[in-house]
Structure formats: structure tokens, C-alpha cells
């Protein structure tokens, strides 16, 4: 019984850490225009829209966060062999990972922007100076929370994987959750606030991203301001639920039905979520209906 109580406690803590990690990850990637919104930021100068948006194309978010979290976990794992102090090891691991992340961000922005010289897009070096520390800070929160969560799993739930491999797996999951849940808020909404709501992005509007703010020119910090409120929490809930439900089903049902309990509960959860998704989609389609042109709507 005590093991189950401890397991449930660890599950709840890991879920909470994952929620924070998901929110920080998505905000970081949106400030850096990483993931799919990156293509429009990259395209804009080619269509004649010079901008001051941070364009750090390291790779998709899942591989990038796979690296940052695996690196944080790997360095923490190595320090655990020497220091035997988990808190210090995880912090040092996250610092090394964030250092690597920061360098990758800077080189990605410089590389992409310098290669767009033909379209007269200048390198705004103040964008790098002011926004790289912001993304690094968010990445630190995301990496630290994920590595701590992985440590809890390895140490207290006795997960068969070693810490670095857990970091890799959960890092990829974190990137995938942030990319799938959070990016639409930035890529489909924030970048295209100049388009009619629900109009999608017509080909003629490709690259015509919002470049001016309420006052002055839009920087990626404005995008972070927007996505922190909407995309971040959504990604946080997504990743938190993934981690919580995954651990919950394992802790409670691992030894049921000849070890198959957790697997069956996993399938049941997938079915439940599929039903919820179906319901939400049907509800939103019937409520909002297909997109109507402005004239029809006003008449």
C-alpha cells in the first residue's frame, strides 16, 4: 500500500512538473518561431515583408527537445556518479543543456538570416541579444522540470530505462506536445491576426505575417506575451495529462491481470480521448459552421 501511495504522490508531482515544462517549452518555441510557424517567418522576406521576428530553426521541436532533455539528463546522470547530489546534478545538467540550446538558437538565426541577403533581410543583432536569453530562460524551466520528472521516475518508480534515455523519450514527447498543441495559437492565429478569423491562410497571404505591433514594431517578445496566455497553458495541460495518465495507469494497474492491466487501461484511455476529440470536433463544427465570406456574414 505504501508503495502505491508513494507512486501516486510521485505521479502527481511528475504531472505538475510536466505541466510547467509544457508551458515553458511552448513559450520558448513560439518566441523563437520554432516548429511549423517557422516556415512563414522564413518565407516573409522572400515575399517582400522584412521583419524583426526571431527565426531560430534548429529543427522540429521534438528532436530539439529530445536533445536538450537528453543532454540535461545525461550530464545530470554523469554528475550523479561523482557528486551523489541529485539537485545539484540536475541543475548542472540543465545549465549545460541550456548553454547548448542558446548557441544553437544564435547560430540558427544568423545562418537563416544571412542566407536571405538576396531578399534584403538584414541581421538585426539586437533581436539575438534581447531574445536569446528569454528563450534560454524558458528552456531552462522546461529542461529542469523534465529532467527532474525523469529522475523521479528512475529513482522512485524504478523505471527500467536509465536517466538519459528517459530524458530523450520524454524530451521528444515534450516537444511533440508543445508543437502539436501550442503552435496553432502562434502559427495560425498570432502570425495572421491581419486575416479574417477562420479564413485560413490563402496562398496570396503567404508570408504576409503581422510585423507591426499596437505601438511600434512587433518583436517575438510580443508573440511570447500572446502565447504565454493561450498556447502555453494548453501545451502544459497536454503534456501534464500525458505524463500523469501514463504514470497513473502504470502505478495502479501494472500488476493487475497478469501484467496486462496497464496496457488495457492504456487502450481504454485512448478510446475515451478519441470519443472526447470526436465530440469536441462535432460540437465546434456545428457551432461555428463553415467559413462564410464577409459580405454574406454582414448581409
Amino acid at each position: 500500500m505504501e508503495t502505491i501511495v508513494l507512486g501516486i504522490g510521485i505521479t502527481a508531482l511528475a504531472g505538475a512538473l510536466a505541466t510547467v515544462a509544457g508551458a515553458a517549452e511552448d513559450t520558448e518555441s513560439d518566441i523563437g518561431s520554432q516548429g511549423d510557424p517557422n516556415s512563414q517567418v522564413q518565407l516573409a522576406p522572400q515575399m517582400g515583408y522584412i521583419h524583426r521576428i526571431f527565426n531560430k530553426a534548429v529543427s522540429g521541436e521534438p528532436p530539439a527537445y529530445g536533445l536538450w532533455c537528453a543532454l540535461g539528463a545525461g550530464v545530470a546522470f554523469a554528475f550523479l556518479q561523482i557528486l551523489h547530489n541529485p539537485a545539484l546534478a540536475i541543475i548542472l545538467g540543465s545549465i549545460v543543456a541550456v548553454f547548448v540550446q542558446g548557441v544553437y538558437c544564435v547560430t540558427a538565426y544568423l545562418g537563416r538570416t544571412a542566407s536571405l541577403a538576396k531578399f534584403e533581410q538584414p541581421v538585426y543583432i539586437d533581436v539575438v541579444k534581447s531574445l536569446t536569453p528569454v528563450t534560454m530562460a524558458h528552456a531552462f524551466v522546461a529542461i529542469f522540470c523534465t529532467v527532474t520528472m525523469c529522475y523521479l521516475m528512475a529513482e522512485f518508480l524504478h523505471h527500467p530505462f536509465a536517466l538519459p534515455l528517459l530524458g530523450l523519450v520524454w524530451g521528444i514527447a515534450l516537444g511533440a506536445a508543445g508543437s502539436a498543441t501550442g503552435n496553432p495559437f502562434y502559427g495560425k492565429e498570432r502570425q495572421y491576426q491581419n486575416q479574417n478569423f477562420g479564413a485560413g491562410v490563402p496562398i496570396s497571404a503567404s508570408g504576409n505575417i503581422v510585423r507591426y505591433a499596437e505601438a511600434g514594431q512587433r518583436s517575438s517578445l510580443d508573440n511570447g506575451w500572446f502565447t504565454t496566455k493561450f498556447a502555453g497553458p494548453a501545451s502544459g495541460i497536454c503534456f501534464g495529462l500525458i505524463v500523469f495518465l501514463e504514470l497513473w495507469r502504470t502505478v495502479l494497474f501494472e500488476h493487475e491481470l497478469g501484467q496486462w492491466g496497464a496496457v488495457i487501461i492504456g487502450f481504454v484511455l485512448i478510446v475515451i480521448f478519441a470519443i472526447i476529440d470526436l465530440w469536441v470536433e462535432k460540437w465546434s463544427r456545428t457551432t461555428y459552421g463553415p467559413y462564410e465570406k464577409a459580405e454574406e456574414a454582414s448581409s
Binding site: A44, M47, G48, Y49, I50, H51, R52, L110, T113, A114, L116, A117, K118, F119, E120, Q121, P122, V123, Y124, I125, D126, N208, R211, Q217
Partner: peptide, 15 residues
């Protein structure tokens, strides 16, 4: 790079 600017506004080129 086309230009290396520090804290300069957007240069409009036709967009």
C-alpha cells in the same frame, strides 16, 4: 548578411 543592424527599424522593400 545583407546588413548587420543593431536596434534599427524594419526597412520596407515593397511589402
Amino acid at each position: 548578411a545583407y546588413a548587420w543592424l543593431d536596434a534599427k527599424p524594419i526597412r520596407e522593400v515593397g511589402g
